[in-house]
Write a protein that binds this DNA or RNA. Structure first.
Lengths: 344, 344
DNA sequence: TTTAGCACTCTCGTATCGAGAGTGCTAAAA
DNA sequence: TTTTAGCACTCTCGATACGAGAGTGCTAAA
C-alpha cells in the first residue's frame, strides 16, 4: 500500500537533488520541463500528492512547490541515493596535502578539518585518535620547582598525559626517578582494572600517584579529551536556512558546547564501529539542539588500538552525496596514516 | 582650535554610551530630555556639528541622529572613559569558579574563555601560558612500537612537547634510556643558543635528537603553539551590526584563521609587555580583516617565565568599560594562578 | 491511468503615502 | 559672543494596495 512506484521514487529523488542545489520549492512543471519524464505535469502532480501523503514531501504553503521533509531526506539517503565517490583528481589532491604535512598529528587534524569543511562547504569536526583501551606504558616524574612535580604518563598508542602534582614536602629528582622506575617495572602493560586489583603496599606518595594514573587511564577510555578541531564555521552562515540569526546561533552553540560534542562524537559512533559513515538528520529525535542540522560522522583509526572521530555539520538540506563521500574518504585516509604511524 | 569644550566632551561621552547600549543614532532632543544638560536642543545641535567636524561623530544619513566614528570611539576610550572596575561580587564569583577548577591548566583556559565571553557578551580568545625563553629541562625517549620512538621534552616552566621519531633500526628501551640520561646531564638548563654552540661529537641518532630539541626550543619561543581556546562565538550573531551575513562570516573567519590569530596575539601584545590592556578598534589600519571589529587584549602570566594572551573580540560598538575591566581582571587572576603554580 | 483545462490561492516585488524624527539655518534674545 | 526659538526640509520606516507569476487540486475527457 505505502510502497512507491518507480516513477514516484524518481520524482522524489529529482526533487531532493534539485532542492538541495537551489533551496527553492520544486514545482511539477519545472520537473517535466527539465527532465524528460515523458509524462505531463498533471501526472507528476498526482505523484507528488502521493509522496506528500507518505510524508516525504511537503509544501511550505498552499500553491508553492514541494520540498522534502526530514523523512524524505532519510529515505533518500538510505534507499535512493546510491554510492558516490569523490572524483579521483580531488582524492589525489587531498592525499598530496596530507603527504606534505609530514608526520605531525596536530597538522593532520587541522588539515582534515580544513579539507572536510572545504569539500562539503559546511562546518567540520575532528578529534585526534586516542587509545580504545588504555594500557600503562611509561611514567616519568620530573620536579619542576619547589614541591611541584610534573607527572608524564605515556599510554599505549603513544598517548601522553601530563599532570601537575604538589608534594607534601620536597623530594629530590633522584628519588623521584627511582619511584618512577619502580612503577614502570610494576605496571607495564596493565590496564586500569589490573592496576586497581594490585595488592601491593604503597606509601602516601605512591598511593597518590597510583590514583592519578588510574584517573588518567579511566578518563582516556571513556571520555573525550583534548582539542576538538573544527573549521568552516563561516560556511554555516552562507546557507539561506541560517539567515535567521537564532538558528545560526544554535549552530555556533553546538560547536562550543563541549559536552554536547563529546556526547555526539562518542555515543553515536560507538554503535557502529568502523564499518561506515553515519548520517544524522535533524537530530533524529535524540538531540533537540540539532533539530535544524544534519551531521555526517565517521570513525577512523586502527581498530582496537586508537581511533578518532570526524564529521561535518550542515543544514538538513545538505549535499549528502558529496559530503558522505568526502567524510568516508578522509576517514579512510586518516586510518591509513594512523596505522602507518602505529605499526611502523 | 581643534580642542573640545567640556560640554562637547560630555555630549560625546553621552552619545557614545547611549549608542553602545541602544545601537540607535542619538538625536539632540533625546539628549536634553534624558540628561539635565541645562541647554536647549539647538545648542546641543551646534556642539554635535562641531563634533562631526572634528571627526568624532557622523550621521548615517541626513536627518538621522549621530553615531560615533571610529576616531570617536578611540578618543572616548583613551580620554573620556576613565577607569572602571568589575563589581566586587562579580569578581568574587569568578575567583570562586577558578578556585573550584583545581590546578588543571586546560580547565583554567576554558573557564577563562567562558568568563570573558559571558561577561562581555562577545567572543573570547585565550592561549595557554608558555615560556618566554625556553630552557632544556628533561628529555625522555620511549620506544612505542617497532622503530617508532616517542620523544618527550620538558622545558622550563613545565611545558611539555612530544614528538615521534623514526629510527634507522630498532633500539632497546634500555639503550634509549641511557642516551636520554646522557642528554639530561649535558643539556640541563641550556637554551637553544648554548646547545647549538656545544662542541661535542654526536653519533647519527644523537644528532637527530639534538636537531629536534633545537627545533622545539626555537619554535616554542617565537611561535604560538597549541590550542587557541575560544568561547562565545554565538554572541557575535546577536549584535545588530552582524545581521549582514557577510560581516558575521568575517568574524567567524577570523577565529579560524590561525595565522591571523597568531599574528594578532603575538605581535600586538609584544609591544606592550604586561603593563595593561590593549584596545584595537576597527583594525586600526593594520588588519583589514578586523575592519568591522574591536579587540581588547591583555597578556598574563609571570613575566620572564611564562605568559599567555587573552582577549575579547566584538563589534566596534562594544561596551568598552565593562570589557576592559573584565579582561584586566581575568588577566591578573590568571597571572596570580600561573605564578602560584610556577613558584610553588 | 494519464492528460488537458481551469479556477483558486498564495507569495513577492513594487509603488505609494503619511507619520515621525532629526537636522541646519536664520534671526532674535541673553 | 553664545544660546535659543522657530521653521522648512530631508530621509527613514511601516502600512497598504496591487498585479504578476507560479503552482496547486480538481474535474472531465482521452
Amino acid at each position: 500500500m505505502n510502497t512507491l512506484t518507480e516513477r514516484q521514487k524518481l520524482i522524489l529523488a529529482l526533487i531532493i537533488r534539485d532542492y538541495i542545489e537551489t533551496a527553492q520549492p520544486i514545482g511539477s512543471r519545472y520537473l517535466v520541463e527539465n527532465y524528460n519524464l515523458n509524462v505531463s505535469s498533471a501526472t507528476v502532480r498526482n505523484d507528488m500528492l502521493a509522496l506528500s501523503e507518505t510524508g516525504y514531501l511537503r509544501q511550505p504553503h498552499t500553491s508553492a512547490g514541494r520540498i522534502p521533509t526530514e523523512d524524505g531526506y532519510r529515505f533518500f539517503v538510505r534507499q535512493l541515493m546510491g554510492h558516490t565517490e569523490l572524483p579521483s583528481t580531488t582524492k589525489r589532491t587531498i592525499v598530496h596535502q596530507f603527504y606534505q604535512a609530514g608526520m605531525d598529528i596536530d597538522r593532520w587534524m587541522r588539515l582534515a578539518a580544513s579539507v572536510l569543511a572545504h569539500q562539503s562547504q559546511a562546518a567540520s569536526l575532528v578529534t585526534a585518535p586516542r587509545s580504545e583501551r588504555s594500557v600503562f606504558k611509561h611514567l616519568e616524574l620530573i620536579s619542576t620547582r619547589g614541591r611541584q612535580v610534573l607527572m608524564v604518563l605515556v599510554l599505549s598508542g603513544g598517548e601522553v598525559n601530563q599532570q601537575m602534582l604538589t608534594l607534601a614536602e620536597p623530594i629530590s629528582q633522584e628519588r623521584l626517578s627511582i619511584v618512577a622506575q619502580s612503577f614502570n617495572d610494576l605496571l607495564l602493560g596493565l590496564d586500569s582494572e589490573s592496576i586497581a586489583a594490585l595488592s601491593v603496599k604503597f606509601d602516601a606518595l605512591e598511593q597518590d600517584i597510583i590514583t592519578l594514573i588510574l584517573d588518567d587511564l579511566r578518563h582516556t577510555s571513556d571520555m573525550l579529551t583534548g582539542e576538538i578541531y573544527h573549521d568552516g564555521l563561516a560556511h554555516v552562515l552562507t546557507e539561506p536556512e541560517f539567515e535567521t540569526a537564532d538558528i545560526a546561533r544554535n549552530a555556533l552553540r553546538v560547536f562550543e558546547e563541549r559536552q554536547l560534542l563529546e556526547d555526539l562524537l562518542t555515543r553515536t559512533v560507538l554503535s557502529n564501529d568502523l564499518s561506515g559513515v553515519q548520517v544524522l538528520i535533524g537530530g533524529e529525535g535524540n538531540w533537540e539542539e540539532l533539530r535544524d542540522f544534519s551531521i555526517v560522522l565517521a570513525r577512523y583509526g586502527a581498530p582496537g588500538l586508537a581511533t578518532g572521530t570526524l564529521g561535518v555539520l550542515g543544514p538538513i538540506r545538505m549535499p549528502y552525496g558529496r559530503t558522505i563521500s568526502t567524510v568516508r574518504f578522509v576517514a579512510s585516509l586518516l586510518s591509513d596514516l594512523v596505522e602507518d604511524i602505529l605499526l611502523e
